[in-house]
């Protein structure tokens, strides 16, 4: 195999995946220390999906994600310290600490959350795209959701609406094979998500979600089609979650062997191997990359630690606004 992309770009993809991984490993550690509470859904194992996909979007595009959204938010450019502060529930977090892990928001980057009701983001994404279409804007809305979401009526209703009105939406299904403890094949009579999309009139294809370059390529192609005014597109990224559904679960629903087998396909390890093979990556490169990420994350933790708590008097602030709109 020969080098398909330039070295700087390749190293950047690796760096972004590593950055998400290390951020979340730190978050998991902080969870055990009680610094982070509530639910914490880790993306570990799925990094190639967000990293590959996000190469296809501009800052003009809108993003809607789920409760497993740390990766997307980091990629979008929200500073790691702001996100870590949100995990802590501090007022310097990206949602003033009110949302925590499941509810990252960043208006300045058109990051519309952080939605924790399964399937709940899809209709909103359709509406964002409708607003763009009505205003003659050519940007797109990308909506991430899990394989579990395809069981909800909102999935089918949203795809149909987007197709019917030819809206610029990219539906991005992160198929990690499980909805909590229920395997896709055990909750879908037709487990091929692309066929469901096609039945709704939405162009669709499946991609290896452990291969960052494949994800990037497919997503760019799909985005181009959407930008070209051809209506919505669905991509099904076939991936795997290495950790529990949230911080703890008994994992009664899958075998250790299965998890181990998928770990053999760790998107970071694989890509690292590819880069070495292509002579793009030396051990020094990697060490430097890890050191820079470690420093960034240490600074993020410091920022979260130093951040203020929102005063209790502000409890009911922002339920409504009195500002003129």
């Amino acid at each position: 195999m020969s080098l398909e992309i330039d070295r700087t770009k390749a190293l950047d993809l690796l760096r972004q995946m590593l950055r998400i991984r290390r951020f979340e490993e730190k978050a998991a550690e902080l969870y055990s220390l009680g610094k982070i509470r509530g639910f914490l859904h880790l993306y570990i194992g799925e990094e190639a999906v967000a990293v590959g996909a996000m190469q296809a979007f501009t800052q003009e595009d809108a993003l809607v994600a789920t409760y497993r959204e740390h990766g997307q938010a980091l990629l979008r450019g929200t500073p790691a310290g702001t996100l870590m502060a949100e995990l802590y529930g501090k007022a310097n977090g990206c949602a003033r600490g009110r949302g925590g892990s499941m509810h990252f928001f960043d208006a300045s980057r058109r990051f519309y959350g952080g939605m924790a009701i399964v399937g709940g983001g899809l209709p909103v994404a359709v509406g964002l795209a409708l607003a763009d279409k009505l205003q003659g804007k050519t940007r797109l809305t990308a909506c991430f959701f899990g394989d579990g979401a395809v069981a909800e009526g909102e999935f089918h209703e949203s795809l149909n609406l987007a197709a019917l009105w030819k809206l610029p939406v990219l539906f991005l299904c992160e198929n990690n094979r499980y909805a909590m403890g229920t395997a896709l094949a055990r909750h879908q009579a037709q487990p091929d998500v692309t066929l469901k999309a096609q039945a709704e009139g939405v162009a669709a294809e499946a991609v290896d979600g452990m291969d960052v370059l494949a994800v990037e390529k497919a997503t760019k192609r799909a985005a181009e089609s959407v930008r070209g005014g051809n209506g919505p597109y669905l991509l099904e990224y076939r991936t795997y979650r290495f950790r529990a559904h949230s911080m703890y679960d008994a994992e009664l629903y899958r075998t250790k062997e299965e998890v181990e087998q998928w770990k053999q396909r760790d998107p970071i390890v694989i890509f690292e191997g590819q880069l070495r093979e292509w002579k793009c990556l030396t051990s020094e490169d990697l060490a430097a990359m890890e050191a820079a990420i470690a420093a960034e994350i240490a600074a993020a933790v410091a920022e979260a630690e130093a951040g203020p708590w929102e005063p209790v008097e502000d409890l009911t602030k922002d339920v409504y606004t009195s500002e003129q709109f």
Binding site: G89, G97, R98
Partner: peptide
């Protein structure tokens, strides 16, 4: 409960 969607941080949730 206070008239607010329940916030994440403990001190605010306790207050809500």
């Amino acid at each position: 409960s206070a008239e607010v969607p329940i916030p994440y941080p403990k001190h605010l949730e306790d207050a809500a």
